[in-house]
Each structure stands twice: as structure tokens, then as C-alpha cells.
């Protein structure tokens, strides 16, 4: 008797748990809580919100058409650095993964040293090292230094993702390709990578999002990316909270867009099962 009552209440609980109403209630509660928290804290700070000031730092309409503000320009810089670094980090990541999986001792060692070096030091130090030490030697200005640092850093993580994806392909696939006489290059290109990419895509997306967020660090070598522009505007206007919220929102839009694009790609890659 006791047991059956127990199971009834469990079933009820599961029903509640599954209904969309439950999710919505949760969500609303969360929002209310956050708003309350901010209201309280700004009240105590005595902060004077001036949201109406913000849009013109992004863009404004004048007689001559749209005038882009510093935040928009910063966003474009962030975009460019992230995009170039992303492509480079994928190339570096894949190359390193292939080196690590090769049979050559030298190649494996090089890959290993690179990985350990990058993963065990902070990105900020790497950035400074490349800009202040390597930069003058190699003649790298700010922008290439920033791109190089970001690509090397994210490339190390990307390579682990690639490697995991490649080794997850069953041995039988390699053996079938081998017995058909396919070259190593063709085996990777036609058999292994197309299958691995489906497994690699989700973690690689998180890595790309990290890259976009990490790119904020380039402001430390005085590149006027989104973060740097925000700092500059705040120094002038003291719109601290409004601008930081806006900038966070802009990063969020970029990363969310990336996620959506990858999602669409993923669906296109889906295997027929």
C-alpha cells in the first residue's frame, strides 16, 4: 500500500517535470530573481542608468547615412581577428593531430612539445611573448602578433579535438581503405575525416566560441577590438554598466550566430541511419 502511493506520487512528479509549464515557470522565476538582484544592487550603488546614450556608440543615423561608432568598429576588429585565427587554428590543429598520429618520432615529438608548451602557459603570457619578443625579431606588428598568438593557443586545443575524432574511427575503416590500396592521404580525405567531422563539430564549436571570447585579451597590446573600444568609451563617458552589458550582448550575438551556423552544418552532415 505504502509502495503504491509512493509510485503514484513519483508518477505525478514525473508528469509535472515533463510539462512545458514547468520549464516556463522555472525560466520566469530565474529572470525575476536576476532582475530583483540587479535592482537591489544598483539601488544600493545609487547608479544612474543612461541607456539612451548607448546606441550612438554602435551606430547613428545622420544626413549622410549610417555613421558607425567605436563599438561597431571594435566589433569588426574582433570579428576579423577571430575569423582569421579560427581558420589558422583549424589548420594548425589538424596538422598537429596528424603529426601526433604519424609514425615518425620527430613529428610526434614536435607536436608534443608544442602542445605541452601552449597548454601549460597562460594565453596572456604567450601574447606578450609573441608581441614583445618575437614581434621585433620577425617584424610582426600588433595585428599579426595577436592572430598568431590566438591561433597557436586555440590550435593546441583544436588538435586534441581532431585527434580524439580521428582515433574514434573504427579500425575496420582503416583496414578496408588499406586493403583497397588507398593512399594515406586519400584514406584521411575520403574515409576518416568525413566521418570524424560529425563527431568533431560540437567540441570544435565550443573551442571557436572560446576563441572569440579569448580574443578580448588582444586589447592588452592596444588593439582596438570590441573590448578595447568599450574601455576607451567608458573612460570618456563613465557609462560603465550600460557599455559592459552592451558589449557582453554583442559577444553573445556573435557566438550565438556561430552556434546556429554550426547547427545548420551539423544537420547537413547527418548520416542517413
Amino acid at each position: 500500500m505504502v509502495e503504491s502511493r509512493h509510485s503514484i506520487s513519483r508518477g505525478l512528479w514525473r508528469k509535472i517535470h515533463k510539462s512545458p509549464l514547468f520549464d516556463i515557470t522555472q525560466f520566469v522565476l530565474l529572470i525575476v530573481l536576476i532582475l530583483w538582484f540587479f535592482a537591489r544592487s544598483t539601488e544600493q550603488l545609487g547608479y544612474n542608468w543612461q541607456w539612451y546614450q548607448v546606441p550612438r556608440y554602435i551606430f547613428q543615423m545622420t544626413e549622410d547615412g549610417i555613421q558607425f561608432g567605436p563599438l561597431w568598429e571594435g566589433l569588426m576588429i574582433t570579428f576579423r581577428i577571430s575569423a582569421i585565427s579560427l581558420v589558422l587554428s583549424l589548420v594548425i590543429g589538424l596538422t598537429t593531430a596528424l603529426l601526433r598520429l604519424s609514425h615518425s618520432f620527430v613529428a610526434k615529438t614536435i607536436a608534443r612539445v608544442y602542445l605541452e608548451l601552449i597548454r601549460n602557459t597562460p594565453l596572456l603570457i604567450q601574447l606578450f611573448f609573441i608581441y614583445f619578443v618575437l614581434g621585433p625579431v620577425l617584424g610582426l606588428s600588433r595585428f599579426p602578433s595577436a592572430v598568431l598568438a590566438l591561433s597557436l593557443f586555440e590550435g593546441a586545443y583544436a588538435s586534441e579535438i581532431f585527434r580524439a575524432g580521428i582515433v574514434s574511427i573504427r579500425r575496420g575503416q582503416w583496414e578496408a581503405a588499406y586493403s583497397l590500396g588507398l593512399s594515406l592521404f586519400d584514406t584521411y580525405k575520403d574515409i576518416v575525416l568525413p566521418q570524424a567531422i560529425r563527431r568533431i563539430l560540437p567540441p570544435l564549436t565550443s573551442q571557436a566560441i572560446s576563441l572569440i571570447k579569448d580574443s578580448a585579451l588582444v586589447s592588452t597590446i592596444a588593439i582596438y577590438d570590441l573590448t578595447m573600444q568599450a574601455q576607451a568609451v567608458i573612460a570618456e563617458t563613465f557609462l560603465t554598466f550600460e557599455l559592459w552589458f552592451t558589449v557582453a550582448g554583442m559577444y553573445l550575438i556573435v557566438t550565438a550566430t556561430l552556434s546556429i551556423i554550426v547547427n545548420i552544418m551539423e544537420n547537413r552532415f547527418k548520416m542517413v541511419t
Partner: peptide, 17 residues
């Protein structure tokens, strides 16, 4: 030799994609 020798596996090992 790989070209001259064909192999059929127990678990087929077809390329699923």
C-alpha cells in the same frame, strides 16, 4: 600487392558515409 589482393571482412567494414 594491396591492389592485387582483395579482402572481405567479417563485419563488412563498408564506408557508412
Amino acid at each position: 600487392i594491396r591492389k592485387e589482393v582483395g579482402m572481405v571482412f567479417q563485419l563488412f567494414n563498408l564506408f557508412p558515409h
